[in-house]
Amino acid sequence: MSNSKLYKGSLSIIILKLLTETHKMYGYEITQKVKELTQGELNITEGALYPALHKLEADGFLEVEMQRVDNRLRKYYKLTQAGNKEEVSRIEELERFIETIQGIVNPKPSLG
C-alpha cells in the first residue's frame, strides 16, 4: 500500500464501498480493483488487506462464502445488513471529513 497514513486509515471504507458496488469479491480481486480505479496510485498489500477484511468480518460487517475455483478454494466476502449500514455511515463521515479539510486547505475567499 502507498505509505500515506491517509490511505491506510481509509482502507476499511474502500473495502465496504467496493463491496456495495460488487455483490461479492475475494482478496486479490479487491487489490486489483483498487489498483485499477486509482491508476496504480494505491497498491494495497496483503499485510494491510487481510487484517482489515478479517476485522470487518469479526465486527459482523462482512460474511464469507467459499467456492472452488481453478483448482483451489476461494474466499468471497459479502456485505451483511450491518455492513451496508456501516458503509453508508462511514461514507457520510468521510464526506464530512473531506469537506472540513477542504475548508482548511482551500478556504473560500471571503466577500468582505
Binding site: Y26, G27, Y28, E46, V69, R72, K75
Partner: peptide
C-alpha cells in the same frame, strides 16, 4: 492458508 494460497496463485497467474 487457503485464502493465502488463492492470493499467491492469483498473483502468479497475473
Amino acid at each position: 492458508r487457503s485464502e493465502v494460497v488463492d492470493h499467491v496463485a492469483s498473483e502468479i497467474e497475473n
